[in-house]
């Protein structure tokens, strides 16, 4: 997706999965598992481990701090032309609140979006970026990136290369999260599961995909706690985004905020 269209499988981060056999295995895993299991026999195992399912499902929303600020440096590609924008973003996931100011990379605010709960206000300073289009594209992208909720009762499959696919059909659309298991960190015996991508599949076709990159491509090291690069493609509205991200994190206890978020989520359930 980074350099063009994704294939009808999963977006593969070429840097992370540079070995051809790995690519094939991952592709097979994606094609034959998750939401497709009713149609195809999965070559790799379905997992009934409810603790792991629950852990990964919670991981959907623990990918970012509960509150943070970030700068998005974005290349929007639409019908072959690319527009570079900067997005200045504050997120409070506990309150489901996002505030985005989008500027042309040379300066000048193009639009501003503020969501809080179910209310969204959009102010566009340019007639060519209509609020209705922004609502279908940018607002949805922000929700998918930062306000995703766990799946109600997902299925879990395991593939090669420590990949796990969490998926569920909802109203004809399959939502799929791909995680990669990583070794426990220092001072911990808990395995880590990193979200690698998120997709919407409809009639076996990918209609929406987000791929996350955590590693510093200049050093080859996975050093980032949060995604440093995101590639997003919307096949329905025919656009792609490449997003470099700079985070502004405050030292105030995100753990406490995380607990509050989980408590709020349980109350909703």
């Amino acid at each position: 997706m980074v350099d063009g269209h994704p294939t009808e499988g999963v977006y593969l981060n070429k840097q992370k999965f540079s070995m051809v056999p790995s690519v094939l295995l991952v592709t097979l895993f994606i094609l034959f598992s998750g939401c497709s299991t009713k149609t195809y026999a999965p070559p790799l195992g379905k997992i009934e481990n409810s603790d792991l399912i629950s852990k990964l499902n919670r991981g959907v929303r623990s990918q970012y701090p509960v509150r943070f600020k970030a700068v998005h440096h974005v290349a929007l590609t639409l019908l072959g032309k690319t527009y570079v924008l900067n997005g200045y973003l504050t997120v409070n996931r506990l309150e489901r609140q996002i505030h985005l100011i989008a500027q042309n990379d040379m300066g000048g605010t193009l639009f501003e979006i503020h969501t809080q709960g179910r209310k969204t206000s959009i102010q566009s300073n340019t007639k060519f970026l209509k609020p209705s289009w922004l609502e279908k594209s940018v607002v949805k992208d922000l929700e998918n990136l930062y306000l995703n909720t766990p799946l109600p009762s997902p299925a879990l499959s395991r593939g090669q290369d420590n990949l796990f696919l969490l998926s569920e059909n909802q109203e004809g659309i399959c939502r799929r999260y791909l995680f990669k298991e990583e070794p426990p960190g220092q001072n911990s015996d808990q395995k880590n599961y990193r979200l690698m991508d998120y997709k919407h599949i409809k009639n076996r076709k990918e209609i929406y995909a987000i791929a996350y990159t955590y590693e510093n491509k200049d050093t080859g090291k996975i050093t980032e706690q949060y995604p440093s690069f995101i590639a997003l493609v919307n096949h329905t509205l025919h656009y792609q985004l490449k997003i470099n991200i700079q985070y502004f994190l405050t030292p105030s206890g995100t753990d406490t905020a995380g607990i509050l978020l989980l408590q709020k989520e349980k109350r909703r359930q």
Binding site: V2, V71, A75, G80, V84, N104, K217, D218, F229
Partner: peptide
């Protein structure tokens, strides 16, 4: 924090962005 280059040479505009470890030449829409 982000690498980005814009150049003009004799009234022609060129735009480059650095994503995911590599420079990419863009066909800018503006």
């Amino acid at each position: 924090p982000f690498k980005s280059s814009l150049m003009v040479n004799n009234n022609r505009v060129y735009k480059y962005e650095y994503f995911n470890g590599a420079w990419k030449k863009l066909d800018p829409g503006n």
